[in-house]
């Protein structure tokens, strides 16, 4: 589903990614671990197409297409979903309006029929319930006044509703207590399917107790320095990142 070859990327003129190779097939969950500043978030922004993240070398293929030729929203419609580390607050736009606009925009871009208000509402409620996202939250402005846990749950709700092919979870565990972490992880696990791939970016092993990966990569100074199975995460927890040429962070 996703093939990355020798990916180099710059932010503010500084090279952050220095040659990433990554292959992810449908149905797989890959964890990318690494210390702060190793380039984890940069990789997620490059995939989503954020302005200011400049690819200087290498290629990306996503479902056989080149995302570099697609705008941010086109990538989303094609199935790339980024769960933000810090979801933005958008005053004045209710969560409900936002979800409906996003879903219908993607459906339209894919040539599918847009959902009417009734069908949409039913769908949202169905998806919101297991995530403990209340009607009250849906009526409020997007992420405004949400607690840390509510924000992350709202991100997972968006993911569940938009049904992307590739989910990129950027430090979804940051700022969550253990109960909130479990709820979010359950939501994510429910979305695991043979058609869908996931990249779970995290600093700590903790999240991977709940979202068990198929493959674990260690990212350090802009390169993947080690790849292994889920046991690699446990090893890292013990030995730290220092063994991989990174400063302990």
């Amino acid at each position: 589903m996703l093939e990355i070859r020798n990916l180099h990327a710059k932010v503010d003129g500084k090279e952050i990614l220095k040659g990433i190779d990554l292959d992810i097939r449908a149905g797989e969950v890959h964890a990318i671990m690494g210390p702060n500043g190793s380039g984890k978030s940069t990789l997620s922004y490059v995939l989503a197409g954020r302005e200011g993240y400049e690819v200087t070398e290498g290629t990306i293929r996503f479902k056989g297409r080149d995302p570099m030729e697609m705008g941010v929203d086109e990538r989303a419609a094609a199935g790339v979903f980024l769960a933000f580390q810090y979801p933005l607050e958008i005053p004045g736009v209710t969560t409900m309006t936002f979800l409906k606009t996003a879903l219908n925009a993607q459906r339209k871009a894919r040539g599918e029929e847009e959902l009417d208000a009734v069908r949409f509402l039913k769908l949202v409620r169905e998806k919101a319930k297991p995530l403990n996202v209340t009607d009250d939250m849906l009526k409020r402005a997007l992420n405004v006044g949400y607690s840390g846990g509510e924000k992350k749950r709202a991100e997972v709700l968006q993911m569940s509703l938009l049904e992307p092919a590739l989910c990129v979870l950027d430090e979804t565990d940051s700022g969550l207590d253990i109960d909130a972490l479990k709820t979010v992880a359950e939501g994510v696990n429910a979305l695991r399917s043979p058609e869908r791939a996931m990249i779970v970016i995290t600093h700590y092993q903790r999240l991977l107790d709940y979202i068990v990966p198929d493959v674990v990569h260690v990212l350090s100074k802009g390169r993947i320095v080690k790849t292994g199975g889920k046991e690699l995460a446990l090893e890292l927890e013990k030995s730290g990142y220092a063994a991989y040429g990174a400063d302990a962070a």
Binding site: A48, G49, R50, G71, D73, A77, F81, L82
Partner: peptide, 8 residues
């Protein structure tokens, strides 16, 4: 960016 990343 956030809105566009959701396909809008």
């Amino acid at each position: 960016f956030y809105l566009r990343s959701r396909g809008i």
